[in-house]
């Protein structure tokens, strides 16, 4: 191959390389112009999101006399949290103690699941969270840690079992109380027995 043919070949390859570069740069500009995944900018619902942000901000500052003080306080607290996510992109933050283990809730997914399950279980929520493997999986709790904490604090008894056996309203406490009342009655009766010893009543 002669020198001129080599030169032609180099020129041809350089030109092709430059063309590829130009196409890539063009594509990158095109991608920048498209709406971005992860934000609402440029999407069809951007206007709705802006209006929602405004609505939520207004609800977080509700005032007036059309609702009770308590309801207003609750509404403001709820919508402040929603506002911080919607406007400032901050996740919610909540911590609950389950059998000596702290469950940190830092996303709306977890918070919604937690509230729903808490509503369902009501007073049995703590007892189930400490023993139910399904709930451990849902909330990412370490079951062995919870069981270990319970073992350390209660000598093998769960918080619920402790309440049932050692609490003021437990069956054992009620029986002990009834026993005391019975003994006191007997003692009083014995003390006053001399008054009725001859059968006379005063």
């Amino acid at each position: 191959m002669s020198l001129s043919e080599n030169f032609k070949e180099v020129c041809f390859r350089s030109g092709r390389f430059l063309l590829t570069c130009l196409i890539l740069v063009g594509c990158s500009h095109l991608f920048i112009l498209l709406p971005q995944t992860g934000s609402w900018e440029g999407s069809d619902v951007e206007v709705i999101i802006d209006e929602l942000k405004q609505l939520v901000s207004e609800l977080a500052l509700t005032s007036g006399h059309h609702m009770s003080k308590k309801a207003k306080k609750e509404q403001r607290a709820t919508f402040r949290e929603i506002q911080s996510t919607l406007v400032d992109d901050e996740p919610p933050c909540d911590c609950i103690n389950i059998g000596g283990t702290t469950l940190e809730v830092d996303s709306w997914k977890e918070l919604i699941q937690l509230n729903f399950i808490r509503h369902c279980l009501q007073s049995g929520f703590q007892a189930q969270c400490m023993t139910n493997e399904t709930l451990w999986k849902i909330f990412g709790l370490d079951g062995t840690e919870i069981m270990a904490n319970l073992g350390m604090s209660g000598g093998g008894l769960s918080q619920f079992e402790k309440r049932m056996t050692m609490g003021k309203t437990s069956e054992a406490a009620k029986a002990a109380d009834q026993n005391l009342v019975k003994k006191r009655k007997n003692r009083t009766k014995a003390k006053n027995s001399f008054l009725t010893a001859d059968g006379d009543e005063y």
Partner: peptide, 9 residues
Amino acid sequence: GEAVALIHE
């Protein structure tokens, strides 16, 4: 409000 926050998140 909670649903909107979930969608946004």
